[in-house]
């Protein structure tokens, strides 16, 4: 623990740690709307199996996950719940925003009850566009996230300022 934070870990071990982290992501399915069905197809259907990437879609509790995929429209009524669930996740945590509703409000950009994008509430790592994005697009988003994790500097993440969301 102390080694990682102080940044004195040799590069080989850092990349080994990153590789092990990226291939063992546990995903919390924050399935809100139509994108949840495509996410379910990506996770549950044998055709677009996501487990081959090492991502396991099992947990039903946010306290055991590293990755949350926000799929579907976020409404103003739902927004506090999203924030609370994000705060319950342990560090290091990642967010994929799936679908145009979660990216920017989508087809409901002018509605009175829709939050225009989940990045107004929580920080997002990867945006997957589409309405709904094909399961392969979600898999590409996960692969991009894995690349990002591989190149991540763990010390900077631990030492730097915490991500403050207000």
């Amino acid at each position: 623990m102390g080694l990682v934070e102080s940044g004195k870990v040799p590069k080989g071990i850092t990349s080994l740690l990153n590789m092990s982290r990226k291939y063992s992501l546990w995903v919390y399915q924050w399935g809100l709307a139509c994108c949840a069905i495509e996410m379910g197809a990506a996770f549950g259907s044998p055709r677009y199996d996501v487990m081959r990437l090492g991502v396991i879609p099992l947990p039903a509790s946010p306290r055991q996950t590293d990755l949350v995929v926000v799929s579907g429209t976020v409404t103003d009524k739902m927004a506090p719940a999203v924030k609370r669930l994000y705060e319950q996740m342990p560090e290091p945590k990642y967010v994929i925003s799936m679908g145009s509703c979660a990216n920017c409000g989508g087809p409901y950009w002018d509605s009175y009850s829709v939050t225009k994008g989940v990045d107004q509430i929580i920080p997002v790592d990867v945006y997957v566009p589409g309405c709904p994005p094909r399961p392969e697009a979600l898999l590409e988003g996960i692969v991009l996230l894995q690349e990002r994790i591989q190149n991540e500097d763990m010390a900077a993440r631990w030492k730097g300022e915490a991500i403050v969301v207000d």
């Binding site: 009524k77 002018d110 225009k116």
Partner: peptide, 20 residues
């Protein structure tokens, strides 16, 4: 449908869609 603190009646014609 709406959260408890919502002000106004959305379906009235004089309720504007603020994003527009």
């Amino acid at each position: 449908y709406l959260p408890g603190e919502f002000e106004g009646n959305p379906m009235r014609k004089d309720f504007p869609l603020l994003a527009r």
